[in-house]
Every structure is written in C-alpha cells, then in structure tokens.
Design a protein around this nucleic acid. Structure first.
Lengths: 166, 166
DNA sequence: TCGGTTGCGTTATATTATAACATTACCTGT
DNA sequence: ACAGGTAATGTTATAATATAACGCAACCGA
C-alpha cells in the first residue's frame, strides 16, 4: 500500500494511513535537519494532527486539540506554528476553506493544486504539470509574471460518487 | 476602447472605465430583468461600488461606502447583497483575498479564473478554456466530478513589471 | 387592499487571524 | 558550566471577516 503516487490521487479508504503519517513526519524531519530548521515538539505535534486525516483542518480545531493535550494554547500559538509549517512547505493552506492540509512533497517549493471532495471532505494534491502549463500559457499571453497560485477544485470524489447511487 | 476582450485581459491604465461600469450595469440589469430578479437600489449601488475599480474589494470597505452614502448599514446588509450578486453571477469572490470583484460576463454560470497583480491590485478574469481543459483532464484521471473551482494566480502584471526597471 | 413573499434593519455573536509585549528554551562561544 | 544572544512560545488584547435570528417595511400579485 502506497501513501502517495506520482501525480497525486485520492487516498483509498483502505490505505495504510499510518504509513502516510510516518512518511510525512520523516520527510519533514529530514527537510528540517537538512535546512537547520527546528521541528520543535509543538510543530511536530501540529504537523501530526494535520496529518491525522486527508481532510483540510481549521486552525481553531487544531488549537483545541493541542490545548486538550495537557497544554493550554491561544490563537497566536497555532498561527505561528502554521506559519512555520507553511513557510517551509510542510503544509498547504486551502484558501477556499480557511483550512490547512499536509503537503505530500514536504519541503519542495512546488505550487500545489487541490481537488477537494464536498462530501467526504478529503483532498487530493496533484502535481499539476498539465494545469501548470495551461496557466503559464495564459500568463504568458497576459505578460503576467506568476507568483503564488491558488488552484482548488471542489466537487465529488470517485469514492463518494460511486456510493451515491447504491 | 473596449472594456473586455474575448479571453480576458488586464485593463489598460488608459481605458475608458466609465464604459466598463456602464456595460456591467446594463448587463446586470438585463440579466435581472430576464430572470425576474430584483436589482434593487442597494444591490445596484453595491455593484457599482464594486465596479469602481478592477481591484477586488473587501466587504467592510463596501460597507463603509454604502454607510457613508447617507445610509447606515450593518454587516448583514452588505453580506446579503454580496450573496445575491454572487448567486446570480454578477460578481465573483476572490478566496485568497476575501474580496469581491465584478464579473465581466454577468449572468453566465461560468467558472472564473483570475490573475491578480500583487502590485497594483488589479485582477484579470480570463475565460480559461486552456486551464479548464487541463483541470478536466486531471479530474477525469481521478474520477472526480467537478463542482466549484477556485483558480487565482497572484503575481505581477505586465504594466507593473515594465514600470519596475525604470 | 389584502396577504404573502422578499428585502432590509438591527442586535448579537461566530469564526478566522494578527499585534504587541513578556517569558522561556535553546544554542554558541568561552 | 555559564553568560549572552536568538529563537520559540506564552499571554492579553483586538482586528477582520462572516453569519444567526428576529422584526419591520416594501413590493407585488390576486
């Protein structure tokens, strides 16, 4: 069972999620070590909470969770932690949901595209060479120098769509 | 001078903006008439304020503006109005900015893609057949049924980019 | 003009996010 | 081990964005 594939996909409901989390954490750790970044207890904890599912999760949900953990935390705590994780490419922010999700390619400074299921809430990050080219093409026509991209496609995933007419 | 082109573009700094507004308002009016929708004074006013520029504008900015206009308004007023305009395709919401911008193709139930300049703040809505195909392609691969799309590319527009090294 | 529906006013509050400053933990050089 | 600086976290307050709930008023069709 593989956690992620080359071009991105929705996780099977039967996938070995522990290995997703393990891989993500290991990758994050490696990236931090390589770049002299401190993956503190708090940061690791939050990253792990984010990876608890493949669903984007809100800042205040995370805040409650780390507060429950014997710690009491205020908003800046979680937002600072999220900033760190975002800044170093360990997570992504889903603007259309004001929520955060683990990055499947930790550390790479790639731009991410997401397909997000309205029904199960899961999100698939795709390595969008095709989409990327299309955007570049339009940008070129406009003489536009591309910065940060936000590509979030809501809809219904294959899993939910098939269960629909049972 | 033309307000909008077929595939979308950044407005020239010298374009005749009055004609943009006039066209947008006329188009909105036509759409509302055709669909038995009530483009009330408030709605028209807000739409006009949104069209005051080609920059996405925040809800509370609009709120201040309609409040200044002899009226005093609370948040629900502006949000209800924005909901109406969004629902009927007269404006778009820019998720990455929590802001709103006039729709160049009023009434069509098209999905919009935006290029947004970080420097001047202007946004160009493009009719993204190319981007659309790319997204459809990935969606098909995933077995994903596409719903609402959010495609917002930040960066620097040609105008600002050229002025940059003066 | 009656009566229902839609739009708007108003009050209160939820949700998401940041500013500013204090304190603690950590690392570095000695 | 310790001093001193830097980075991380705690804490308090508040900003910015958005919605719930309820009542009144305007509009419109019969």
């Amino acid at each position: 069972m593989v956690a992620t594939k080359v071009k991105g996909c929705f996780p099977s409901p039967h996938h070995d999620h522990h290995s997703c989390v393990a891989a993500a954490l290991a990758s994050a750790e490696a990236h931090c070590t390589a770049n002299s970044l401190r993956l503190t207890e708090l940061r690791r904890q939050v990253l792990e909470l984010i990876w608890a599912s493949h669903r984007p999760v809100g800042a205040y949900t995370l805040l409650e969770q780390i507060s429950g953990n014997g710690r009491k935390a205020a908003p800046p705590t979680i937002y600072r932690t999220l900033s760190f994780l975002l800044e170093h490419g360990l997570i992504h922010r889903i603007a259309s949901l004001n929520a955060y999700i683990g990055c499947s390619h930790s550390g790479d400074d790639h731009t991410a595209r997401f397909f997000i299921c309205d029904q199960c809430g899961e999100a698939a990050e795709v390595d969008g060479t095709v989409i990327d080219e299309a955007i570049s093409k339009d940008a070129q026509r406009l003489g536009f120098r591309i910065g940060k991209q936000t590509v979030e496609v809501a809809g219904v995933c294959a899993e939910c769509d098939s269960g629909r007419d049972k």
